[in-house]
Amino acid sequence: MPEDRAAPDDPRLGDAQLLRAYAQGDAGAARALVDRLGPRVLQVAQRLLQDRAEAEDVTQEAMLRLWQIAPRWQDGQAAPSTWLHRVAVNLATDRLRRRRATWLEDEATEPAAPTPSAHEALMAQTRARALETALAALPPRQRVATVLRHLEGYTNPQIAEVLGIGVEAVESLTARAKRRLSAELAPRRDELGFDR
C-alpha cells in the first residue's frame, strides 16, 4: 500500500489542493477526499434513490469520475464538492428515469391521510428520521425536487436542468411535495416537536 503523505484531517487543505495532490500520486489525499466528500454524496444519493445498494453504486461511480478528472482539474471551475455533488445527482436521476414506471407516477392521487407505514415511522423514530421517511414516501420527481431544493440548496433553474423540465414544473413539484409532507407529518407535529 502506498504511503499516505497528506494529513487527512488537515482543514487547511482545500478540496482542490487535495485533488491536485492525488493527481500527483498522494494516496493520503485520496483518503481525505473520500472522508470529506463521500458521506454527503452517499446521503444525497440515498435520499434520491431510496435504495442503499444503488446509492452506494452512485457514490462509487461519482467518486471514480472525480479520480479520473483529477489530472485535468483546473482551478477556477466549480469546487470539487459541487462538481461531485452534481455528478451524483445526475447519476441518481438517470437511474430514477430508468425506473420509468415509478418515475412517471408523480400525478398519483395524493393521500388524504398519512400512509400507515409513514404514520408508524413518525411515532417510532426521531424527528429527523420521520422527515426522512416522509421524504422517502414522496413520488420520485417530487422527492428529487424537494431534496435538491430544500436539503441540497439547488435553485429552481438548477433543478429544472437536472430533471430536464421547466422551472414552473419544478415549482409545481416542490409545492405538491410540501403539501404532501405537511399532510404526512401533521398528525404527529406536536409529538415530534415540529412546531418548536
Binding site: G25, V34, D35, G38, P39, Q43, T59, Q60, W67, H150
Partner: peptide
C-alpha cells in the same frame, strides 16, 4: 435536516472508494 452532518461512510464502501482511487491514480 439539511444542516445535519452526514453519517460516515460504511467501511466496506470506504474501502471500495479507496481501491478505485488507487487504481485510477495517474
Amino acid at each position: 435536516l439539511a444542516r445535519a452532518p452526514a453519517p460516515p461512510l460504511p467501511d466496506d464502501l470506504s474501502a471500495r472508494l479507496m481501491a478505485d482511487a488507487l487504481a485510477a491514480m495517474p
